[in-house]
Amino acid sequence: MASLKDLKNRIASVKATQKITKAMQMVAAAKLRRAQEAAEASRPYAQRMGTVLGNLAAGVQGRDDAPKLMTGTGKEQVHLLLVCTAERGLCGGFNSSIVKLAREHANKLLAEGKDVKIITVGKKGYDALKREFAQHIIEKIELRGLKNIEFKDTKAVGELVLKMFEDEKFDVCTLFYAQFKSVISQIPTAKQLVPAHFEAQEEVAEEGADNALYEYEPGEQEILETLLPRNIAVQIYSAILENAASEQGARMSAMDNATRNAGEMIDKLTLSYNRQRQAQITKELIEIISGAEAL
């Protein structure tokens, strides 16, 4: 049994930890609001981009001269996984759930005999994947020290992906990130970037008549060629913003839990501290009384 002094030290240390987790939770809550606003503000752009591209894509579908970014290279041999995670830990299962999804995907592809290349965005993803997939990781990007992530910061990532595609370094590109649903729920998501996938396509097909009337300036083809690369940059940007919001949300709930656990622990420790103190007093009394009786 730990001595009274030990217990006292334990209680003090748990209390100190609780203070830290409480502070982290509050910081995360403040950051979350900003990150959430940014993520939500970026949604209209990405959404509209999707609709417009969906319209365009329906038009050129099945044509031989359609841009490769949309139709793919015709092969499925080399897969590029773009894994977006946080720069910091202490945010519950946030990083590990994204990494888990990416790992499952990578293992599945490897089992099928495909080549896998990985680019990690964020330090934690690299740390988690380097042991298993060291030879597959071709690049790690860190977005450290950026307070507010702006479009131009993430553009470089998009450009890297495009450059690799032009050089025919991969056939299929998939983006991994956590979609922000709410503070308590972030959904790890895999999204295929190349060849581009548009949800709007089916819907558009039904409204085919409307689509046929579209005029394009310069040409349909030229527009697609400028839009598709930009779409990739935008998708990455919005994924990173979603990620930032998810990270703060995950950290907030993780720290809330930690604070509560610390509180419980303090209660338990205090209880056993008091019990022991009483037991000691009783013991001393017995000693005194039995000593007096012996006289």
Binding site: A38, A41, S42, P44, Y45, A46, R48, E150, F151, V234, Y237, S238
Partner: peptide, 9 residues
């Protein structure tokens, strides 16, 4: 009419 940038509406 809507004007959207990647950052916001």
């Amino acid at each position: 009419f809507e004007l959207v940038s990647p950052e916001r509406l």
